[in-house]
Design a binder for these strands. Structure first.
Length: 583
RNA sequence: GGUCACGUAGUUCAGUUGGUUAGAAUGCCGGCCUGUCACGCCGGAGGUCGCGAGUUCGAGUCUCGUCGUGACCGCCA
């Protein structure tokens, strides 16, 4: 037998038991006359003790063991003379009388410790060693628990998990598809799904009125810390529902996860209109852990002769409470921050609210004390507050101020990763104007239904039509999004036309869906959650790579197995492909 | 497609204005040590400064290119 117990479970109550343990050598402490070894497995660490006086041969063998050797030991559980309360098994140790090396190990390229000395690159290359560390094991365990709790909750609500295919059909809307050549059908390709969207709608037509799936999705786009080419969604769909039914159902799932995973009872989630989120936070995924709402200043700020304000489409600011003491240098740094190309503001106007009730501003030349006071009142600013104002084109300025708001939130320590502020953003626009292609495209996806009361605007002002679409946002992270779908062939056709599809294109790409709508499609809607992001959020990390066992780097490469890689000429021939690119 | 940062010992990093033999910590190897638990103490080995070109009397340091890694913009229904 290779083991009778794990390295995390033996306690004082097991004293004098004879046990066999197997695991990895975490560390040896050779004191000369005696040697201690920390033996590690997934469950914990147990101390082994070898004594030169009682068993010199065995003790010599133990001294030769290197880090990460795999060993099997048999011995008796003894109470420690010096207990280590930092360790779950710290009250006992194993007095070893038999030692077998199951496998040796090269010296690992970095230490398998909580505070490892290994850098990102190296740890990715030796991911199987990195995964031995506690932080990764805890993250993967958290991921597992969240998946289990999701399945438990969904099952309790009568949802059933149904698998949908991975080899499907390429369609133009949305992200770039990963594509798979077909051997049996020369010149034709499958695509990997960007999501099971159309299949789950077909399941609704089929009468499976509560569906979910924890499922891989694939998008061939450039990566970020929170984006992988393959990622996991909690994909859900319901029939006979309206927007509120969906929000309530999945607010239930979110609350269940907060409760069971984080032990938190969270309040009902606020529901914020898309237009309000943009107006007050400059973002469709506001971080509500802190307030610092935007205050628009077009009326009071214009007409004072300050060209920047007078010519701006929008003048808008925030109040950074308690920052009135910022030095010139600190303010310059903030100005540099907003002028970075990614932020894109031209400059930053400040108003310092001095403790004596006076104001100091970068636009003193144009605004007297009284006028500054009037501006400050709009923010409910108190002495020692700092008002920061940006001006310019509306969308750009809001986006820049959003970044500045988050930066100030971070500086003021208002973005505690242990605090969670979920909310719904509702009533997204149906369409978005794309400058590049000079046409509208669906903001969510082309199956999203417009608001009934906005139908009349579809012909003349389609940009103003609102959709039955919603996002779940937690702490400034978009965790999920969905919509009430179109279930009527005529409306779906009209939608495709609006998006610039010809009738033939729509038919060849989505005919299967529209045909299905002719056979009694029920009203339906759903949502999909970014599972990796949700786990990352609960794990307190910014990068979803930390919660994926074998992630890819930001060029889409797996540096451990070295993929993607070339394939042989024979393989190419089999799939009827010839390469055509410059090396 | 673009912007920025980084690349020096196994590893993580420092390295001044361009100037003698490139340092520290940790890991590794050897020795001592009977209650350690980040054990301690003593000693040792370990470097194509990512790669290529250029400037210079002289380059880890400056310039250009290139490769790798990370972050971001575009992109991601």
């Amino acid at each position: 037998m290779l083991r009778t117990n794990t390295c995390g479970e033996l306690k004082l109550v097991n004293k004098n038991e004879k046990v066999t343990l197997s695991g990895w050598v975490q560390r040896t402490r050779d004191l000369g006359g005696m040697t201690f070894i920390d033996l590690r497995d997934r469950y914990g660490i147990t101390q082994l003790v070898f004594n030169m006086e009682t068993n010199p041969k065995l003790c010599e063998a133990a001294r030769k063991l290197g880090r990460e050797f795999v060993i099997k030991v048999t011995g008796e559980i003894a109470e420690r003379i010096n207990k280590n309360l930092k360790l779950a098994t710290g009250e006992i140790e194993i007095v070893v009388n038999d030692l077998e090396v199951l496998n040796t190990s090269k010296v690992p390229p970095f230490t398998i410790e909580d505070n490892t000395d290994g850098g990102e690159e190296l740890r990715m290359q030796y991911r199987y060693l990195d995964l031995r560390r506690n932080v990764n094991r805890d993250n993967l365990k958290l991921r597992h628990l969240m998946a289990i709790e999701t399945r438990k909750y969904m099952t309790s609500q009568d949802f059933i998990e149904i698998e949908t295919p991975y080899l499907i059909k390429s369609t133009p809307e949305g992200a770039r598809d990963f594509v798979v050549p077909s051997r049996m059908n020369a010149g034709q390709f499958y695509a990997l799904p960007q999501s099971p969207q159309t299949f789950k709608q077909l399941l609704m037509v089929a009468g499976y009125d509560k569906y979910f799936q924890i499922v891989k999705c694939f998008r061939d786009e450039d990566l970020r810390a929170d984006r992988q080419p393959e990622f996991t969604q909690i994909d859900c769909e319901m029939a006979f529902v309206e927007q509120d039914d969906v929000l309530n159902a999945f607010e239930g799932l979110a609350k269940h996860l907060f409760k069971t995973i984080k032990g938190l009872n969270v309040d009902d989630f606020p529901r914020i209109q898309y237009v309000d989120a943009m107006k007050y936070y400059g973002s469709d995924k506001p971080d509500l852990r802190f307030d610092m709402k935007f205050v628009e200043l077009n009326d009071p700020a214009k007409g004072k002769g300050f060209q920047v304000f007078d010519s701006a489409e929008l003048v808008v600011g925030i109040n950074a409470e308690g920052c009135g003491g910022y030095s010139r240098k600190q303010l310059d740094k903030l100005t540099d921050f907003v002028r970075k190309p990614q932020i894109g503001a031209k400059g930053l106007v400040y108003i310092k609210c001095n403790n004596d009730g006076t104001f100091k501003s970068s636009v003193d030349k144009f605004f007297g004390q009284e006028e500054l006071n009037r501006l400050a009142k709009q923010f409910n600013a108190k002495p020692n507050d700092l008002i920061l104002i940006l001006a310019g084109e509306k969308n750009r300025t809001r986006k820049a101020l959003c970044e500045l708001r988050l930066e100030m939130g971070s500086r003021l320590g208002l973005r505690d990763p242990n605090v969670f502020k979920p909310l719904w953003i509702v009533n997204f626009p149906l369409l978005e104007w794309n400058e590049e292609t000079q046409c509208y495209h669906a903001m969510h996806h082309p199956f999203t239904s417009p608001k009934k009361e906005d139908f009349s605007m579809l012909e003349n002002t389609p940009g103003e039509v609102r959709a039955n679409a919603y996002d779940l946002v937690i702490n400034g992270v978009e965790i999920g999004g969905g919509s009430i779908r179109i279930h009527n062939k005529q409306l779906q056709q009209r939608m495709f036309k609006l998006l610039g599809f010809t009738e033939e294109e729509a038919q060849s790409q989505f005919g299967f869906l529209m045909n299905a709508f002719e056979y009694g499609a029920p009203p339906h809607g759903g949502i999909a959650f970014g599972f990796d992001r949700w786990v990352a959020l609960f794990a307190g990390t910014d990068s979803i790579r930390d919660v994926i066992a074998f992630p890819k780097n930001n060029a889409g490469r797996d540096v451990m197995i070295d993929s993607p890689s070339a394939i042989s000429d024979d393989q190419l021939k089999e799939i009827h492909m010839r390469l055509d690119f410059n090396e």
